[in-house]
Design a protein around this nucleic acid. Sequence first.
DNA 1: CTCGATTTATTTGTATACAAACATTTTAAT
DNA 2: ATTAAAATGTTTGTATACAAATAAATCGAG
Lengths: 140, 140
Amino acid sequence: MSIFSPSQYICFKLSRAMRKVQRYYEVNLAPLEITTVQFYVLSSLWETDGIKFKELAQKLSMDGATLTGILDRLERQEFVLRADDPEDRRSVLVFLAEKAKMYRDEFQCLAETLDNEIKHQFSSEDFAIFSRMLNQIGES
Amino acid sequence: MSIFSPSQYICFKLSRAMRKVQRYYEVNLAPLEITTVQFYVLSSLWETDGIKFKELAQKLSMDGATLTGILDRLERQEFVLRADDPEDRRSVLVFLAEKAKMYRDEFQCLAETLDNEIKHQFSSEDFAIFSRMLNQIGES
DNA sequence: CTCGATTTATTTGTATACAAACATTTTAAT
DNA sequence: ATTAAAATGTTTGTATACAAATAAATCGAG
């Protein structure tokens, strides 16, 4: 092997593509004063409000220690609330605050637009393969 | 739109897949006392030693501020050296240190193995499409 | 030549990401 | 019932990632 370019590695390609797409999201979500990852957390809560911390982390495939910090910031901005779980005192329930419910459509609409701009760069067949492979890797 | 799962977004799928693959790399590179991103920097230098800081950042599609920190750590571990550019006193040249040259084959071989384990989960046709799409997004 | 604009790398500050250690609570084996 | 083991969420420490501000050097219009 005589070529050592990092771009030969699938991991490098993945991380470079991910950073490009995430930066594109980040720039466009910035006026709404929210990060891409924070948007994913709200998306999960729009689907299931009042979910357990542990389940939320699992839905997001996210490390618990990471989620703790993200919830701290979302709570500080009054997008979410934490509450004790009456059934298990170790557990924490996470709820949407009014502000998150209010901006839901606006956030959702923007994210949809950003997503479509990526999608439309490719044929729907290729995109389907791409999406399936990302899921297979990500859910493994 | 009534479904708000974050997993509908391509950006989420990308970042989840990337984290899975990167963690897999990270765990396997850990015994060599190097991170995945640090490995990419060395890969670039194995291809072109003594490159300018600016060019290195471009090859890696990496923010300069990020690269500064990574080089600090690689320099502290004696994997690389920084030197003044005789042609432009603003510029910095980055060189491989002996340690990086010594471990080159070992690092390269392990990374090759990890990459193949991802690759072999898919048909070569699908993988080619996947790879091409990651490049198209990442190089945009 | 001169001085403002640009380029280059670093520093600072904030936000993920995750391992490891921790405190609290619950579970389960006896 | 008791207690060791397991589960849950937070804290701490390190490493990316990047915007914004900074310092130093070079460029370029006049």
